[in-house]
Structures are given as structure tokens and as C-alpha cells.
């Protein structure tokens, strides 16, 4: 090897990092400082110590937002992965119309969650929505209830709509992973007398490791910071019951409690960090074994 001069190419990561530092890292660090103040977005900020955090844990609405956000994630992240994996397994072989089916399943993911929310709101409207008339036509209008007016069912609807919309995205990543697994491995397993379940547990799952990691982590992050779909489906209602932390942050920021909303953002970050770090550590350990 000839000795290389220090070339400009060594610094090619600088522009990306500069953009990132200005618009992400600097505000993030700044936010850590702001969360201890009573800043309202305009006037000078005063240091108030841990006041914002204490207020947060005394606010019933905030605590209910945490519960909603966590419940939503517990429903949405596992379901997205299971449904996405099942779709991918169904689609992982050659058949006619495969790319069309894949397209159909991915399609909901490209549409604005806001528009999706409105479409589903129309379907689910009590007394006059599409599903009401559908059940009415079947002669069983009582099968349809006011699903959006009740906390439990509204949350369930939000979870299911979210899964319906983004399962295609998880599917595509699992499909990419499945296509990297050599057919010979299944062939070998079959010759050794393994059933489908054995092949799935001992060949497919371990080799899907990287795809599972990407999907689980992005789904946890996405679910814990869910915003649009809740905004358009329920707007946080009934009352503030289905409001999530992201929506709370935005509303507090508009309500000129900027310092407080930064504190809530930091709490959300900690809530995201724990499961992400735990699952990433667990999965890495599993892969090393």
C-alpha cells in the first residue's frame, strides 16, 4: 500500500454531522437546561429547580397520558411485529400476483395518518358511520357500539388502526430478512426430520435476528411517541383520556408552558430509553448465545 495523503474524503462525515449538531444535538442539550425553568417561549426564563418534574407527577392528566401511551405501546408494538411476521411468512415464496399483494399491504403505510384517521373516523362514527350501516344492513345494528366514546374501546381501535396501517412496513423488513435465509437450511432440516415448527424456531427465528431487532426497536420508539393517528381518530378524547404524551407535549408548548413541556419531553425520552435499551441488550445477548 502506498502512503495516503490526508484527503478531504476523511472529513466527508462533517456536513451531515454539522446539520445534525445544529438541529438536533444542540436543541437536545439546550432542552436539558430548559427543563429546569419556567420559560414560556417568549420572556426570559427563571430557574425553578425540579419544579416541573414535581408538577408533572402531581398532574392527573399527565399520569393518565403515561398510562395511555404505555398501554398503546404494549398493544401496538407486539402486534405490529406478529402481524408483520405472519404477513412476511405468507408472502415468502413465489406465487402469481406476489408483488401486487405486497403493494396492497404496504399501501396504507404511505398515506398520511391524518387522512387515515379521518377515513376510520368516518367508518366508525356512531349512528351514521359506514360500519353502523353495514351491521344495520345485516340486521344486527346492536353489534355496533359507540366505540370512540369509551376509553377502552377507543384505545383498542387506535391500536388496531395503527397495526393495520404499519404492518406492511414491518412485513417488508421481515421479508428482506427472510430472503437472506438460504433454502438449503430448510432442506437440511427437513431431511433431518424436522417439522415446520422446528424449522421456524431453530432456523428462521435465529437468522431473522437483525430484522427482529430493527423492527422491535423502531416499533417501540414509534409507538411511544405516537401523535398523528391519535390526533385524527380521537383528538385525545373522550376528554383527555386517550391523549398521549406527544400530544400533551405539543399542547403544553402551545399553552405557553414551554419549560414544562421540555421537562415532559425528557420524561418521555426516559420512558423510551428503558425498553429500547433493555430489548436491544436482551436481543444482542440472545444472538451471542
Amino acid at each position: 500500500m502506498k502512503s495516503r495523503k490526508i484527503g478531504l474524503h476523511q472529513f466527508m462525515a462533517v456536513p451531515a454531522f454539522a446539520l445534525y449538531a445544529v438541529f438536533f444535538i444542540y436543541p437536545l442539550l439546550k432542552g436539558i437546561g430548559l427543563c429546569f425553568t419556567d420559560w414560556d417561549g417568549i420572556k426570559a426564563a427563571h430557574f425553578v429547580g425540579l419544579r416541573n418534574f414535581i408538577d408533572f407527577f402531581h398532574d392527573q392528566r399527565a399520569l393518565s397520558d403515561i398510562r395511555t401511551t404505555v398501554l398503546f405501546t404494549l398493544g401496538s408494538a407486539p402486534l405490529l411485529n406478529i402481524v408483520g411476521l405472519v404477513y412476511a411468512l405468507l408472502m415468502n415464496s413465489e406465487f402469481r400476483g406476489k408483488s401486487i399483494a405486497r403493494m396492497c399491504i404496504y399501501m396504507p403505510a404511505i398515506i398520511s395518518p391524518l387522512i387515515m384517521g379521518y377515513i376510520w373516523y368516518f367508518l366508525l362514527q356512531p349512528g351514521r358511520g359506514f360500519l353502523y350501516h353495514f351491521f344495520d344492513g345485516l340486521g344486527h345494528p346492536e353489534w355496533f357500539g359507540n366505540w370512540m366514546g369509551n376509553y377502552k374501546s377507543a384505545l383498542l381501535v387506535i391500536v388496531l388502526v395503527n397495526v393495520w396501517q404499519y404492518a406492511g412496513m414491518t412485513m417488508v423488513i421481515y421479508l428482506a430478512g427472510l430472503q437472506g435465509i438460504s433454502r438449503d437450511l430448510y432442506e437440511a432440516a427437513r431431511i433431518d426430520g424436522a417439522r415446520w415448527v422446528d424449522g421456524f424456531l431453530h432456523v428462521t427465528l435465529p437468522l431473522l435476528g437483525p430484522s427482529i431487532r430493527i423492527n422491535v426497536i423502531t416499533n417501540i420508539i414509534g409507538s411511544l411517541s405516537v401523535f398523528d393517528i391519535v390526533m385524527s381518530l380521537t383528538g385525545g378524547g373522550p376528554g383527555y383520556q386517550t391523549e398521549t404524551l406527544s400530544i400533551y407535549i405539543m399542547r403544553m408548548c402551545y399553552g405557553s408552558k414551554t419549560g414544562y413541556s421540555v421537562a415532559v419531553a425528557i420524561i418521555l425520552f426516559l420512558i423510551v430509553l428503558i425498553p429500547v435499551a433493555a430489548s436491544s441488550w436482551l436481543m444482542r445477548k440472545k444472538e451471542e448465545d
Partner: peptide
């Protein structure tokens, strides 16, 4: 690269409020 990998785990909404000031 390490910073990017770590920051991938930070949801965008978290820095949005301080970013607003900037």
C-alpha cells in the same frame, strides 16, 4: 457513527420544543 446510532433511539418530538426556540 456512534452518536448517530444512539440518537436513532431519540424520538423527534423530544427535541422539537427546544428546537422551536432555536
Amino acid at each position: 457513527y456512534l452518536i448517530f446510532l444512539c440518537c436513532m433511539m431519540v424520538p423527534g418530538i423530544i427535541n422539537t420544543v427546544p428546537l422551536y426556540g432555536l
